[in-house]
């Protein structure tokens, strides 16, 4: 963004990096970045976890959703420095010992992904939703999943997958 009239004040030229230490997918990690770095970029660029996708970058599309302290959260509207000290689960942390998370398995069985771009956000949002809402009906599933936009518009398979998991016995969240 170029703006020849924009004045950068002296203290903006000297902005110290911040330490970010947190737990990602059960592993303690740390990094150093500019305070303005978005959590999604920190996960992708600094930690190499590119499964979390940066879509709209203003909190609307939901592709970048991860679990922060167990709660689905947008990482494009969260600064990396705000996540210091938290426990994060990304799409890379869902499968265990080569076995897919039940939600991943259900997405597979119900053809709940086409291009796959929104899938990480869909899975994380669905897992948090079912962990906090027991026995939802289809309307509630649709309302909850409206938090994430699928541009392939393959919503029916997604709703079917979430409903199928909701009928299974409760599964433990990955730490």
């Amino acid at each position: 963004m170029s703006d020849s009239t924009h004045q950068v004040s002296a203290d903006q030229l000297d902005i110290p990096d911040v330490d970010v230490a947190l737990t990602v997918n059960g592993k303690a990690v740390r990094g150093r970045c500019e305070p303005r770095k978005l959590l999604v970029d920190f996960l992708r660029e600094d930690l190499g976890l590119t499964g979390t996708h940066a879509g709209c970058e203003h909190g609307i599309c939901g592709a970048c959703t991860v679990l922060i302290d167990g709660r689905a959260s947008r990482t494009c509207t969260t600064l990396a420095v705000q996540a210091a000290g938290t426990q994060i689960v990304t799409i890379e942390g869902l499968a265990r010992d080569g076995v897919m998370h039940p939600m991943q398995q259900a997405f597979h069985e119900h053809h709940a992904l086409q291009c796959g771009f929104c899938t990480p956000g869909m899975l994380i949002t669905a897992i948090d939703f079912l962990n906090s809402h027991r026995n939802p009906d289809e309307t509630e599933v649709r309302e909850a999943m409206s938090a994430v936009i699928c541009r392939c518009t393959g919503y029916q398979g997604i709703v079917n997958a979430v409903l199928a998991v909701s009928r299974q016995p409760p599964t433990a969240l990955p730490e």
């Binding site: 909190g59 939901g62 959703t65 709660r71 947008r74 949002t125 906090s132 938090a147």
Partner: peptide, 9 residues
């Protein structure tokens, strides 16, 4: 208010 993931934060 927004969606579940925005209310988390």
């Amino acid at each position: 208010v927004g969606h579940l993931p925005t209310r988390s934060r």
